[in-house]
Design a binder for these strands. Structure first.
Lengths: 204, 204
DNA sequence: CCATTCATGTAATCGGTTACATGATTCT
DNA sequence: AGAATCATGTAACCGATTACATGAATGG
C-alpha cells in the first residue's frame, strides 16, 4: 500500500479557457460584465465566444481566486455597475498561461456537412458554398480595414513596447488567414459542385 | 389568453451534431462502435472529434430514433461486436441536415493566447509559433498525399456518381486550406516576434 | 407605444471530457 | 512480463447554450 491517502486531485479551483478569455479582455481595460459581454461579441468573438450567462458567474469565480477585483460604480441615469480590474496575480496567471502548450482542436460544422454532401444533389448545395464564400469575403474586407488602421498606428510608434497593438495586429492576421483560405475553399468547392451538376445533367 | 397549453417544445428526441457526425461515418460503411471511434480519430477527427464514451450512448439514441440499427457479429478470437448500419430514415435525415443553414462559430485556443501575447517577452513566445508552423507543415504534407491519391481515383472514374469520393476530396481540401493558411500565419508571426525581440534588445 | 440599451443575474439542459471498469488476445 | 489491440460500456464532472427574470431610460 503506497503513501497515498485518496487525495482529491486539486482543491484550489482551476481556471479554464473562459477565465483566460475574460482576463485577456480585462487586462486591456477595466470593464463591467456587460461591457465584457459586448467585446466577447465583437472583437474577441471572432475567435472566442461567451454569453452573459457564462460571464457573470465566471467573474465571481475569478474574484474568489484573487485574479480580479471589482469596485462599485454608482450611476444615476443607468443602473449601478461592478467594474472589474485584473490583479497582479491575475496578470501573472494570464502571462504564464500564454506560454503553456496548446492543443490544436478543430471542430468545423461546415466541413462536417461537406463530408456528407455526396448524398445530396450537387445543384442544391453549390449555392450554399457560394453564399458562404460571400460571407467570408465580407468578413475579410472588414478585417483588412482593421489591419490597415493597426498598421498605421504601429508605424507611427516605431516599436510596440508593452502595448497590446502588436498582439491585435497578429490576431486580425489570423482572422484574415481564416476568412481568405476558407473563402477560397468555398468558391473552389462551389465550382466543383457546379461542374458535377452539369455532368450529371448530360449523363441523365 | 391564447390557445397554448404549455406544450413541451419537442417530445421527439432531437439529433445533434455528434449524431450527424456518426451517421456521416456510418453511411460510408457498416461499423462497430469501436471502429467508428477509430475513424473519429483519424480521417474525421481532422474536423470533428468524439471519444468512445460519447459514441456508444449516442449510437443507442440513434437506434431508438430509428436512424440506425445493429446486428450482432459473433467472433471467436475477438469479443463479439455490434455492427451498425444506417437506415433509409437515417440517410434521409443526414441528407436533409446537409442542406440546413450552418452557423459559423470559431473557437481557437491558439489565437486566444496570441491575443494576450503582449504580456510576455517576445523572445520566449516566438519559438512556440515556429514549432506550431512546423506541425502545420507536417499536417499539410500528409493531407496533400491524401489529395493526390483521391485525385488519381477521380480521374480514373471520369465523374463521381453517388460515391463519397468527391466529398472526400473537398474535405481534404479544407484541411489543406487550414494547415497552409495557419502555418503561414504562424511563420509570419514568429518572424514579427523575433523582430520585436531584436528591437527590444537594442533599446535595452 | 414598442423596441433597444444598460445592468445584473439564475435555472435547466445539453454536449464534451476524464476517469473508471472488465477481459481475452496478440505483439514486443 | 508488460503493453497494445479489440470490444463494450458507466459515472462524475465541467463547460456551453437557451430560457427565464427584473427594471429604468432612451430612441424611433
Amino acid at each position: 500500500m503506497p503513501t497515498s491517502s485518496a487525495v482529491k486531485p486539486d482543491p484550489e479551483k482551476r481556471i479554464g479557457l473562459l477565465g483566460y478569455a475574460l482576463l485577456g479582455v480585462l487586462v486591456r481595460a477595466d470593464l463591467s460584465g456587460y461591457d465584457i459581454a459586448r467585446r466577447m461579441k465583437e472583437p474577441v468573438g471572432f475567435f472566442w465566444q461567451a454569453p452573459r450567462s457564462q460571464i457573470y458567474p465566471e467573474l465571481a469565480r475569478l474574484e474568489e481566486a484573487g485574479l480580479v477585483k471589482h469596485r462599485l460604480v454608482r450611476q444615476m441615469l443607468r443602473p449601478d455597475k461592478r467594474v472589474y480590474r485584473v490583479t497582479t496575480l491575475g496578470r501573472a496567471a494570464l502571462a504564464a498561461w500564454v506560454l503553456e502548450p496548446t492543443p490544436d482542436i478543430v471542430r468545423n460544422e461546415f466541413v462536417l456537412k461537406a463530408h456528407s454532401l455526396w448524398l445530396v444533389d450537387p445543384a442544391r448545395i453549390a449555392p450554399l458554398f457560394r453564399e458562404r464564400a460571400h460571407e467570408h469575403a465580407k468578413a475579410l474586407a472588414l478585417y483588412e480595414g482593421f489591419r490597415r488602421e493597426l498598421e498605421a498606428g504601429l508605424d507611427a510608434q516605431g516599436w510596440p513596447g508593452d502595448s497590446p497593438d502588436l498582439a491585435d495586429l497578429i490576431t486580425v492576421g489570423a482572422g484574415i488567414a481564416y476568412a481568405r483560405s476558407f473563402g477560397d475553399w468555398c468558391e473552389e468547392t462551389a465550382a466543383r459542385l457546379e461542374a458535377a451538376a452539369r455532368s450529371r445533367l448530360r449523363m441523365g
